[in-house]
């Protein structure tokens, strides 16, 4: 009855006939399924139930800082060429574009240093 996925060997589609991790099983059987009145009697102990309550993170300054940090440490080498071209073409945009190039340089050299002074 189970239909196997035809060889998408790559990991972009993970196919499984049944949930593999405890968190996924908990999600399925503690959160869903038929409930008959008040007959649920079993206490669940010693199991990490945090997964169930993990709701989407509320927008906050902390979240924003994390996003800002994440985009700033991106390896933008793929777009570097375009970025540099823009820098050369648009003189007034120099200051902003410099940031992007600098970020790319950091990623390339991998030293992760954050310098405010403009390196080129």
């Amino acid at each position: 009855m189970a239909v196997a996925t035809q060889g998408t060997a790559s990991n972009y589609l993970q196919r499984a006939p049944s949930p593999s991790g405890l968190a996924d099983v908990i999600d399925l059987i503690l959160d869903k399924g038929l409930v008959i009145d008040a007959y649920v009697r079993v206490a669940v102990i010693g199991i990490e139930l945090v997964t169930i309550d993990a709701r989407i993170v509320i927008a906050s300054v902390d979240t924003y800082l994390r996003f800002a940090e994440a985009v700033n440490r991106l390896d933008l080498t793929q777009t570097e060429a375009a970025g540099i071209k823009e820098l050369r073409d648009g003189g007034s945009k120099e200051r902003e574009a410099k940031g992007a190039v600098e970020g790319a340089k950091e990623a390339l050299s991998g030293d992760g240093k954050r310098s405010k002074s403009g390196r080129r």
Partner: peptide, 25 residues
Amino acid sequence: IVQDNSHISRRLGRAGDVALGESVA
């Protein structure tokens, strides 16, 4: 997101930029 949003790519490189993070979010 950076590629598709020039208002984000233009701001890159500033540490602790809350407005940048908000735009990304």
